[in-house]
């Protein structure tokens, strides 16, 4: 890894940490975390983004209050919404892997972020389902974890991708 990669990855991990702390309270808490993650996908390459997200999770895992609402620790990663956190990492790695294996060579690049979001939702919601010990049914899980978020998330992704094009250096 080049030294310049090191500092850029660190920068993006710091950005994701800051964005996760900005919470606008409400029935469905609104954070800029998703925005920051997809912004990272936009400005770094797939391997670097995987590292940046991994680094962010590691910062939280060690106990720095970087997860939404100033929380941290393994408890958050294993908690009901933890699946979305490591879902980001899995999505980033999946994108990296797909790019490397050229499995999606013919696919329009615009689709990739949405694919990442889908992976993230799938992992996050299945984890929520398992973590709650099947307390909620399948439909209820989707109602609780996907429906209220999907439109804001899509807007955040669009915004992140457009912005990242402008700052790409």
């Amino acid at each position: 890894m080049k030294t310049a990669d090191l500092t850029r990855i660190a920068l993006m991990a710091a950005f994701i940490s800051i964005c996760s702390l900005v919470v606008i309270p409400g029935l469905v808490p609104f954070t800029l975390q998703t925005f920051a993650v997809f912004f990272t996908f936009g400005v770094l390459n797939s391997k670097q983004s995987t590292y940046a997200i991994g680094l962010y999770l590691l910062l939280g895992l060690v106990g720095l209050p970087v997860f939404s609402g100033f929380t941290s620790g393994i408890g958050q990663l294993l908690g009901p919404t933890g699946g979305y956190l490591w879902g980001f990492l899995a999505a980033a790695y999946a994108l990296h892997w797909l790019k490397k294996s050229k499995a999606l060579a013919g696919l329009n690049k615009r689709v990739l972020p949405y694919l990442a979001l889908a992976i993230c939702y799938a992992l996050g919601s299945s984890w929520f389902y398992l973590q709650q010990g099947g307390k909620f049914g399948f439909g209820k899980v989707i109602m609780l974890t996907i429906l209220p978020f999907i439109i804001p998330d899509l807007i955040k992704i669009e915004l992140a991708l457009n912005l990242s094009k402008r700052v790409k250096v």
């Binding site: 660190a10 920068l11 710091a14 950005f15 940490s17 800051i18 680094l55 962010y56 910062l59 060690v62």
Partner: peptide
Amino acid sequence: MMTIALRFVPTL
């Protein structure tokens, strides 16, 4: 990278 990231938080 973790040290650098920590330093970047207040800077940003």
